[in-house]
């Protein structure tokens, strides 16, 4: 390393916010798929929505250290909101999307106070409880949600008044991809900002974060609200592009699946959700073709093995590989830091 310490430090901080070649490549492929994979738009649409959902979980789990077993609460809320809004008010997708996102954010803001109170296990149970309560409400308010039959009769207008949703999912994929990309850009800026860094201190050590003057609770409320809004946007996209909402959007397995995807893809770098969603959907596709009924067995096995090998260690292996690919010195293995 050359240059004064100040130059080196500036360079290093700037490097975390600079785009890497692989990132450009990823988005190029994602947008290229609009023309290159026309017959797969339906599944691609599903993947990109799931990835956005997983990214929203990464914001709280990977960056702020809040584990949630009920993140589908916001996904489901956004989906029902967008679906009901289209039926009862207006079928314009963007209006519905923006309002569903804001409403989910508001729900996240309110429930964040519940989540803040507890620690660890209590927190997991509260997030789970919130999702269960919302699921039960959706189940029982049949007149509004359609209950167990699902919300029928969602009819969407064209996006921007121009692009009708088609049977092949082309408009759906482009719409979901553009929305996800914009939300990703915002998230990517946030995580490298001073605000984003302060979240990481909370994730690593809330006690010390407080002791250096970071208002921990307020930051957690802020990021929880943001993540809820993102999840709501993902839910709204699903409702609008599939024009159907069922209780499945808020079910426990959806919360568990998204957690699994994020864990497979790795937490704390935003792309984990994308990688996880792709791997998960492809696996689901392959295994379902092979043993349609029992695919949860293999998902369970993957989880068990993943934990036994150690997520940390695997992430480290990936980091080593990544560094090698980029011709950088290998990161040293982690040693224990006192505290916690």
């Amino acid at each position: 390393m050359q240059g004064t310490p100040t130059e080196t430090a500036t360079r290093h901080l700037a490097e975390t916010s600079r785009w890497k070649p692989l990132e450009f490549a990823f988005w190029l492929v994602a947008f290229g798929a609009i023309w290159l994979l026309p017959s797969h738009h339906l599944i691609l649409n599903e993947i990109i929505i799931t990835a956005l959902f997983a990214m929203s979980l990464d914001l709280i789990l990977g960056y702020a250290g809040i584990a949630s077993l009920g993140h589908a609460a916001f996904f489901g809320f956004g989906a029902y909101f967008a679906g009901i809004f289209a039926i009862r008010v207006i079928g314009d997708p963007l209006t519905g999307l923006v309002l569903a996102t804001l409403a989910s954010g508001a729900l996240g803001f309110i429930t964040s106070f519940l989540v803040l109170r507890g620690v660890d296990l209590a927190r997991l149970m509260v997030t789970l409880g919130v999702a269960l309560v919302l699921g039960e409400i959706a189940n029982k308010m049949t007149w509004l949600t359609g209950g167990a039959d699902g919300l029928q009769g969602v009819v969407m207008g064209p996006v921007l008044g121009l692009f009708e949703f088609d049977l092949y999912g082309r408009t759906a994929y482009v719409y979901s991809l553009v929305v996800t990309f914009l939300l990703f850009l915002i998230a990517r800026r946030i995580v490298v900002s001073p605000f984003g860094l302060s979240l990481r201190t909370i994730r690593d050590n809330p006690l010390r974060a407080r002791a250096i003057g970071i208002p921990v609770n307020r930051r957690l409320i802020a990021v929880y609200t943001l993540a809820a809004a993102y999840a709501g946007a993902a839910g709204a996209l699903l409702a609008q592009t599939t024009q159907f909402v069922s209780l499945d959007v808020i079910a426990l397995h959806r919360s568990a699946d998204v957690l699994l995807m994020l864990v497979i893809g790795g937490t704390g770098y935003l792309y984990g959700g994308f990688a996880g969603a792709i791997v998960f959907k492809v696996l689901q596709d392959v295994i379902s073709n092979w043993t349609p009924q029992y695919w949860t067995f293999w998902i369970g096995l993957i989880l068990v093995i993943l934990v036994l090998i150690g997520r940390e260690r695997m992430n480290h292996q990936v980091a080593v590989l990544w560094a090698r690919l980029r011709g950088k010195p290998e990161p040293r293995p982690r040693t224990i830091v006192g505290g916690h």
Partner: peptide, 17 residues
């Protein structure tokens, strides 16, 4: 706890199937 939750949920999925 997150690791424990993931691990045991995995066991649940396997057992159900």
């Amino acid at each position: 706890h997150l690791d424990q939750v993931l691990f045991t949920i995995g066991l649940v999925f396997m057992a159900i199937a």
